[in-house]
Design a protein around this nucleic acid. Structure first.
Length: 309
DNA sequence: ACTCCATGCGGCCCAAGATC
DNA sequence: GATCTTGGGCCGCATGGAGT
């Protein structure tokens, strides 16, 4: 008899290209995956994978099965959504998260998810958007909350939050005491601390602050938001980050948000996932993320990119 | 030496049947 | 009806073989 669990195992081995990777994804061991694949091959009486030294590759029959397997899992997800109780949803979702989300509403997402779907657990990976994108494309992540949407046609994205970028300076700095909004000249006069080099905010800032014939602006790229805030507090330079991340420091009078004359593009965060993913737990996480993000300040318009859930 | 998948073995869980 | 026994199924651990 063809078991749904075996079908799911087959699909993950096919997607991830190996038994070991599928075992990690399905939270089990490699021998267990080996047994399930052996069972489904015995049931069908055909070989689904070529086990070669270069890895595991689908046979022609295996490729034929892919479409059926995806339809079966999509149907299961539909049944779970339409008929199943939220408690019935279970599994591990590998969630990639930008640090901005960690510092704003990730905890509320985890809390809400636990309340709604107590049997769904998260494996959280905090990283920069380029690395999260890589994680999605190599399928080591199920969902990513990142600076999106991604241009990849294989992905779907849903807008979550849009945070304006602000210039944040130490309260006793000259910049903080100035009367006029800061421009290119004022920002070029000192180090600017912001998001990592391979991100859009960094590239935008570098373009805005570059002056032909002048030395390159001093931009200290940093992947750790808490380090950026620490450096701003220590007066190393001014931070260009969403003001929502320094609410406490501003309230305490240690940092101030300085009016800025530059057209700093806001940061839009999206929930992004692969179009062919039908993991019902992952889709539940996206739905909860959307609901939580909507309740926050700076909630994005509910625009979906490429598609919808 | 390392990685990958396969196999053997023992342990656990659960349902069904037997016994009181 | 409650409790015990049994057998099947599944899982993980340890290990082996093949290939690089």
């Amino acid at each position: 008899m063809l078991e749904l669990k075996e079908i799911e195992t087959f699909l993950w081995v096919a997607r991830l290209g190996g038994f070991r990777a599928a075992a990690h994804k399905l939270n089990t061991t490699q021998p267990s995956i080996s047994n399930r694949i052996a069972a489904i091959e015995a049931t069908l009486g055909v070989q689904l994978f070529d086990r070669g030294p270069q890895g595991t590759a689908l046979t022609a029959r295996g490729r034929e099965l892919i479409g059926y397997a995806e339809r079966m899992l999509a149907l299961r997800a539909e049944i779970m959504r339409a008929v199943g109780s939220p408690d019935a949803l279970r599994g591990v979702v590998r969630l990639g998260v930008s640090e901005t989300i960690v510092h704003t509403w990730l905890s509320r997402l985890v809390e809400r998810l636990h309340g709604l779907h107590p049997n769904v657990t998260l494996e959280i990976d905090v990283d920069t958007t380029p690395n999260l994108r890589e994680g999605l494309l190599t399928q080591s992540l199920d969902v990513a909350l990142l600076l999106g949407p991604l241009a990849e046609p294989r992905t779907k994205s849903l807008s979550l939050s849009t945070y304006p970028l602000s210039v944040v300076a130490r309260a006793d700095s000259a910049l903080a005491r100035g009367a006029r909004p800061v421009g290119v000249e004022a920002l070029r006069a000192q180090p600017v601390i912001t998001y990592p080099r391979n991100t859009r905010p960094y590239a935008d800032l570098r373009d805005l602050l570059s002056v032909p014939g002048e030395p390159a602006p001093r931009i200290y790229a940093n992947a750790s938001l808490s380090t950026i805030v620490r450096m701003a507090l220590d007066g190393i330079g001014v931070a260009v980050i969403p003001a929502v991340l320094v609410e406490r420091e501003v309230e305490a009078g240690d940092l101030v948000v300085v009016p800025c004359a530059l057209p700093l593009a806001p940061l839009t965060f999206t929930a992004t996932w692969l179009v062919d993913a039908h993991d019902h737990s992952a889709l539940a996480v996206i739905a909860v993320a959307r609901a939580v993000a909507r309740e926050q300040p700076f909630a994005a318009e509910a625009i979906s990119h490429n598609d919808h859930i």
